[in-house]
């Protein structure tokens, strides 16, 4: 998922969130819609500023991304054991795991090496 200004939108991108009108009450374009030039133009005309699109990543790309995030977080938080820092760390680890929908526990980082991919 990525938030982008409408001027960066291209046809072929898929909406990850509903697009609302000015007042934030009327849905102009449903989540899941594939954008076309015509749709983008219509959104421009209606004054929409930004949209949230889905990023199309392959499973392997996702796995790489999550592995990298996990490793960076483990590294940046090493030695920072206070209550607050630990809470932030756990929240981010959970968040990235959920975001990339990896529910299997098999990709925990162990001793700097990743476990076998399932």
């Amino acid at each position: 998922m990525a938030c982008i200004p409408l001027e960066k939108a291209k046809s072929g991108m898929k909406l990850a969130e509903d697009v609302y009108n000015h007042g934030g009450k009327v849905v102009l374009c449903k989540k899941g819609t594939l954008l076309t030039e015509a749709i983008i133009q219509r959104l421009v005309n209606m004054g929409v500023e930004k949209i949230v699109i889905e990023e199309s990543l392959s499973t392997q790309e996702m796995r790489q991304l999550i592995d990298e995030k996990m490793r960076l977080i483990e590294e940046a938080f090493s030695g920072k054991d206070s209550e607050c820092m630990q809470m932030l760390k756990e929240a981010f680890l959970d968040f990235w795991r959920n975001k990339f929908e990896i529910s299997s526990p098999s990709i925990e980082v162990q001793d700097g090496k990743e476990a076998e991919a399932c």
């Binding site: 960076l72 977080i73 940046a76 206070s82 209550e83 607050c84 809470m87 932030l88 929240a91």
Partner: peptide, 25 residues
């Protein structure tokens, strides 16, 4: 943290922050 880069050194957030804002996971 959201845009964490390789080798980046994070500032420490004091536990007070969690208490003042009553944060939970």
């Amino acid at each position: 943290i959201y845009r964490l880069k390789f080798g980046q050194c994070l500032p420490i957030v004091e536990d007070e922050v969690c208490h003042i804002l009553k944060l939970n996971p």
